[in-house]
């Protein structure tokens, strides 16, 4: 028996909106730790890892570890029917072939339940080693989204370079080139407007902008995004999900042959 009650149901809507374009079908794993997901895009270039810790739910009952295979665009369709302020409860029986999403309006005057068919999904779980990063950039998530969107009008790939000067996002295309440099800046009115660059070593990596733009669908989840870089390793683009967890996108770099 699984029963997860999330008061901030709007968070789940935002989570699905940030996943559904990258991944078609995925297993949601439910354990005492929390509600999690690991999935790759169909070309195995990007990976997403979601964790919503059990403490973040108002009520969290998971009698035994369960894996719920869901089509993410169908799940997003169902969650779209919840109000942004609704309380969302996810329910499933141990041997269930469906999952129930219950939506309660904040003043309890409207209660809806949506039942969605589950599916069997063969997914390989990858072990993600703990890595020391050469550079970690924290910046406003909206700024990062803007940069990715702007650069993708000019080129297909972005070179992200971190040096003492700051973090530089560069692209080139048929019409020309573009470089955007963001400097370390903590003298801001609000902490979420800060850009914090921690650099152990200079690093420069090339990534496909198509994937970066897909990751920025998570922007409504968090004011800040964390970009962790190391030479010849996938970049990690992380958004916090309120106080209860995170969504991490891993993207393999493009490497010169």
């Amino acid at each position: 028996m699984l029963e997860l009650r999330l008061v901030q149901g709007g968070l789940l809507k935002k989570v699905l909106d940030s996943l559904k374009d990258l991944v078609n079908d995925a297993n949601f794993d439910c354990s005492a730790t929390g509600f999690s997901l690991q999935a790759m895009d169909s070309s195995h270039v990007a990976l997403v890892a979601l964790l919503l810790r059990s403490e973040g739910f108002e009520h969290y009952r998971c009698d035994r570890n369960l894996s719920l295979g869901m089509n993410l665009s169908n799940m997003a369709k169902m969650l779209k029917c919840a109000g942004n302020d609704d309380i969302v409860t996810i329910k499933a029986d141990d041997a269930a072939d469906s999952v129930t999403f219950m939506f309660e309006s904040p003043n309890q005057d409207k209660i809806a339940d949506f039942d969605m068919k589950l599916m069997d999904i063969d997914s390989e779980h990858l072990g993600i080693p703990e890595a020391e990063f050469q550079a970690i950039v924290r910046m406003p998530s909206a700024e990062f989204a803007r940069i990715c969107k702007d650069l993708s009008t000019i080129g297909d790939t972005v070179v992200i370079s971190v040096t003492k000067e700051g973090v530089k996002f560069s692209t080139r295309g048929d019409i020309g080139t573009a470089n955007i440099v963001c400097r370390h800046n903590t003298s801001v009115d609000k902490p979420e407007e800060a850009t914090i660059i921690e650099m152990e070593e200079t690093v420069s990596l090339t990534f496909a902008l198509r994937y970066m733009n897909s990751f920025t669908k998570a922007t409504p989840l968090a004011n800040q995004v964390t970009i962790s870089l190391s030479s010849d390793l996938p970049v990690v683009v992380e958004y916090k999900v309120a106080e209860m967890g995170h969504i991490r996108f891993y993207l393999a770099p493009k490497i010169e042959e």
Binding site: G127, P234, L251, A252
Partner: peptide, 14 residues
Amino acid sequence: VNQQRQITSFFSKS
């Protein structure tokens, strides 16, 4: 030419 790597070449099956 930059070749797109796959995520599976960095992380192994657990």
